[in-house]
Amino acid sequence: MGVVAVTGASSGVGRASALAFARDGATLVLASRSEGALRDVAAECRALGAVVRVVVADVTKAESLKAVVDAFGRVDVWVHTAAVMAYGRFEDVPAEVFDQVITTDLLGAANVARVALACFRRQRSGTLIFGGSLLGTVVTPYTSSYVTSKWGLRALVRALRIETRDAPGIHICLVSPGSVDTPVYRNAANFAGRIGRPPPPIDTPQKVAAAIVRCAHRPRGTVSIGLANRFIQFGFVATPPLYDVLVGPLMRIAGLSREPVAPHDGNVFGPLPPEAEAVSGGRKRSWTRPAGAAVAGLAVAGALAARRRPSR
């Protein structure tokens, strides 16, 4: 496996990926803004037998990412999962918060790509795996900055894939899950009045991490994780009016908890204390809740409507 770098390693899918690669025998470079949480993850990885170095880096500052390559002098696989979120209607989210989400989630990914590709070009090999999202292919309300950045990330990945066709040893991959039980929802900036949560059906960070490890061994352009993803995407594309009518109420039911919260910036501008960082957000994987069935049924209803629509 060689040297694996993980940006966003302190929490969620990034943290789960670091542990999965440690079990796989990789040498690790773990990077994020949160030094305390990084050291906790590094200790867990070393306990699994991995050689680990820690780099405190902010993906919005390209110069800080050079230390990731310098840690061992090369990177064979770079996994980028660092991301932040903000909840609220577009007009309620302060402009500086919206802009910072875009800067972190999209321009930060571009910064990682520049450093990683420069390294890979020198080596003539390397795999860059981005953490995408179902929300890079569909739209939900109250998450406009995150959705915008993930749509942009999907375009960036496609462009990079085309531009590296001259380098057969370089692979650009996008792993896109649906809802995943991570702390990102609670740690997000919030101007919606209620704390966010992953709408069911919910997968575990470990499931996504396992897919990332498989992608590192056998690179694939795009990997979708989540049994409902294809149904939701079909509804979004096939019956936009029906999707747009249903997605708002479903998001309010399934994507926002009943727990009230005052407006705050979350971790958008800086890391939270280490205790806020973890692999899991503490929610159960669920297909049985009514909201989960409704979300999955959104596209099914769209498919039925499309089939019944009279031809013209």
Rank of each mutant, 00 (worst) to 15 (best):
V213R: 15
E44N: 05
V261C: 12
L65A: 02
A113T: 02
V175E: 15
A278E: 10
Q123S: 11
S34H: 07
E35C: 00
P177M: 07
E44I: 04
P200Y: 13
R46V: 12
L134G: 00
A82P: 00
P201W: 06
P249C: 13
M85N: 10
P177H: 07
P310A: 13
L242I: 11
R53C: 10
D203Q: 05
S280D: 14
D244N: 15
V223W: 08
G266A: 10
G248Q: 05
A95G: 14
P199M: 08
A57W: 04
V268H: 02
F236Q: 09
F90C: 04
K66Y: 14
V101I: 13
V68P: 02
A50P: 03
P198E: 09
C173M: 01
C119Q: 15
R158G: 09
V75T: 09
A31D: 03
A301I: 14
P199I: 03
R122T: 09
L106R: 02
G49E: 13
V55W: 14
A278K: 10
A299M: 01
P310G: 13
V279L: 06
Q233Y: 06
S17E: 09
R289V: 00
F236T: 09
I253P: 00
F231M: 00
V54H: 03
I195N: 00
P198I: 06
Y142C: 02
R46W: 04
G2P: 05
R289E: 05
N267A: 13
A293C: 10
P263G: 05
A71C: 14
I102V: 14
P141Q: 02
P141V: 07
S10I: 04
P219Q: 06
L272T: 08
M251G: 00
A71T: 04
L38T: 00
A82K: 01
E44C: 04
V101G: 04
R218L: 14
L38Q: 00
P183F: 12
A9E: 01
R122W: 08
A18E: 11
I102Q: 09
Q100W: 07
L227F: 06
S34D: 14
A211L: 08
V223L: 03
P274K: 03
I170Y: 03
V268G: 02
V41K: 00
P94I: 05
V41H: 01
Q206L: 05
V4H: 01
V51D: 15
A238W: 13
M85E: 14
V3C: 07
H171L: 04
G196S: 07
S224F: 15
G270R: 04
A296R: 06
A301P: 02
G169A: 10
A254M: 13
R74W: 11
G255L: 11
E275T: 14
T164I: 12
A50T: 04
S311I: 12
F72H: 15
F236C: 10
A303M: 15
V101Q: 07
H217I: 11
Y146W: 07
T137Y: 14
P198C: 11
W287S: 04
V93P: 08
A20G: 02
G255K: 11
A86T: 14
R186F: 08
E63Y: 03
A20Q: 04
T182F: 12
